[in-house]
C-alpha cells in the first residue's frame, strides 16, 4: 500500500504551501497513466490522511495524463496505456517512456 505514503506526500506538499489558519477545500493532482499509482487507492488514503489537517474534507481531483512513448522501430512518438503495451503501429516493444509517469500536485483551492 504505497498509496498511503503517496497520500502523506500529497499532504506534505499541501502543508508546505499554506498557513495553519488556511483551509484547503480542493487539491488537484496530475497522475500519469504509467505512474506507480492506483488513483482510487490514493483517493481512499488521502481521505484518511488529511483528517485533522488543514486539508480535512478537501475534494481530491485527479487528472490523468496519457502514457507516451517513443517507438524506436517507427521513429516517432506513440500513445500507450500501460508499460506492457506494444507500439500501436508496428506491434514492437522497442518503446521508451517519454510521458505519463508524473505524480504531481498541480494546484489547490484555499478558503
Amino acid at each position: 500500500m504505497h498509496e498511503m505514503s503517496l497520500a502523506e506526500g500529497v499532504l506534505q506538499v499541501v502543508e508546505d504551501h499554506v498557513d495553519t489558519a488556511d483551509r484547503v477545500t480542493m487539491v488537484r493532482l496530475e497522475i500519469g497513466q504509467l505512474s506507480h499509482v492506483e488513483p482510487e487507492a490514493l483517493a481512499f488514503c488521502f481521505e484518511a490522511v488529511v483528517k485533522g489537517s488543514v486539508a480535512e474534507g478537501a475534494r481530491l481531483e485527479i487528472d490523468r495524463a496519457p502514457g507516451q512513448a517513443w517507438c524506436h522501430n517507427c521513429g516517432r512518438g506513440v500513445e500507450v496505456s500501460s508499460l506492457i503495451d506494444a507500439c500501436p503501429d508496428c506491434g514492437g516493444f522497442q518503446l521508451q517512456v517519454t510521458g505519463g509517469n508524473e505524480m504531481r500536485v498541480k494546484e489547490m483551492e484555499v478558503a
Binding site: 506526500g9 504531481r104 478558503a111
Partner: peptide, 16 residues
C-alpha cells in the same frame, strides 16, 4: 477570505 487557487506543480515524492 474568498477561495483562491494556489498553483503548486510539485512532485508528490519531492521530499523523498
Amino acid at each position: 477570505s474568498e477561495a483562491r487557487m494556489v498553483q503548486i506543480e510539485q512532485d508528490i515524492l519531492s521530499k523523498n
